[in-house]
C-alpha cells in the first residue's frame, strides 16, 4: 500500500432534485487499500460508488482517480471543464463494479458474460479472452458452470460470476455495491469468501459498501461510517467497531449488530 491516494473526493456534492445525497464529501482511498463503507440507507454510500463508476455525475466538487479528475477535463487554459464521453471512457478502464443485483447479461452464457467485454472493448482475441475467463471462473470456484446461463445458477453463483466479469477487465479499483444484500442468507458466505480471497491475494484497491459488519471488520484496512452525505467517522475496523467516538456511530452499530 502506497501513500498516494488513488481516489480522492474533494468537497463533492450530489443532489437528486431537492435531496442532497452527498454534502461536500471529502474522502480519500490509498492505492491497494481495502475500505468498507457502512451506514444507514440513504446516507449516500452507494452514490459514492456510482459516481466513481460514472453511473451518476456530480453537482459540485472534484473527484480524482489515479491523479486525474474523473468528471472533469483540463481545458487548454488549465481550468476544469466537464468531462467528455471520451475522457470518461478512458477513466473507466481503471474501475470495475460488482452490483447488488448482479446485472449479469441473461442472454449470454456464464463464460460469454466474462469474455464479451474483453473481446468487444479491450480487443482481446476470443482465445485470449476465453483463457482469461476460464482462469477467473476457476478463481471464483465456478469452472464447471461456464456453459450455463445466469438463470440456471443460484444467486451466490451469479454474484461470483459478476465478480469474475468485473475482474476480466483488469481494473485497478474494484467497487462492490452491497454485493450480498440480494442473496439468501445461506449464499452470502460463498460470495464473501471470494471477496475475502481477493482482498488477501491481490493488490487491487477495493471499496465495499456493505451491511455485513463482521466481514467488513475482517477484510478492511479502514471502515468509514457514512451519515447524511458525509463521513461521520472513520478508522481502523477494530477501533470503529469496538470503541466508536461518535454517538451516531454507536447507535447505528448497536442497531445493526442487535439484528
Amino acid at each position: 500500500m502506497s501513500d498516494e491516494p488513488i481516489i480522492k473526493f474533494d468537497k463533492v456534492v450530489k443532489r437528486f432534485g431537492d435531496l442532497t445525497v452527498l454534502n461536500e464529501l471529502d474522502f480519500e482511498v490509498k492505492k491497494g487499500e481495502k475500505v468498507s463503507i457502512i451506514g444507514p440507507s440513504g446516507s449516500g454510500k452507494s452514490t459514492v460508488l456510482r459516481i466513481l463508476m460514472t453511473l451518476e455525475d456530480i453537482n459540485g466538487g472534484v473527484v480524482t482517480v489515479g491523479g486525474e479528475p474523473l468528471w472533469h477535463e483540463k481545458a487548454p487554459d488549465g481550468s476544469l471543464v466537464p468531462a467528455s464521453e471520451t475522457h470518461l471512457r478512458k477513466m473507466r478502464t481503471q474501475l470495475g463494479m460488482v452490483f447488488q443485483q448482479f446485472n449479469l447479461f441473461p442472454h449470454m452464457t456464464v463464460l460469454r458474460n466474462i469474455t464479451e467485454a474483453p473481446v468487444q472493448v479491450l480487443g482481446l482475441t476470443k482465445q485470449e479472452a476465453k483463457q482469461r475467463g476460464e482462469e477467473l471462473l476457476e478463481l471464483v470456484g465456478l469452472a464447471d458452470q461456464a456453459q450455463k446461463y445466469p438463470h440456471q445458477l443460484s444467486g451466490g453463483q451469479q454474484q461470483r460470476v459478476g465478480i469474475a466479469r468485473a475482474l476480466a477487465m483488469r481494473p485497478n479499483i474494484l467497487l462492490f455495491d452491497e454485493p450480498t444484500s440480494a442473496l439468501d442468507p445461506e449464499l452470502v458466505g460463498e460470495v464473501l469468501n471470494v471477496i475475502g480471497k481477493l482482498a488477501e491475494e491481490h493488490d487491487l484497491t477495493m471499496l465495499l459498501v456493505t451491511h455485513e459488519m463482521r466481514f467488513a471488520r475482517e477484510v478492511s484496512d479502514r471502515v468509514c461510517f457514512f451519515d447524511q452525505g458525509r463521513i461521520r467517522e472513520e478508522g481502523a475496523p477494530e477501533d470503529l467497531f469496538t470503541d466508536p467516538n461518535e454517538e451516531r456511530t454507536r447507535e447505528f452499530l448497536q442497531a445493526v449488530l442487535d439484528n
Partner: peptide, 13 residues
C-alpha cells in the same frame, strides 16, 4: 436500466 449500467461499467460503447 441495470443492463445499461452493467454495459457502461464494462465500458461498452
Amino acid at each position: 436500466k441495470d443492463q445499461y449500467e452493467a454495459a457502461r461499467a464494462l465500458n461498452f460503447t
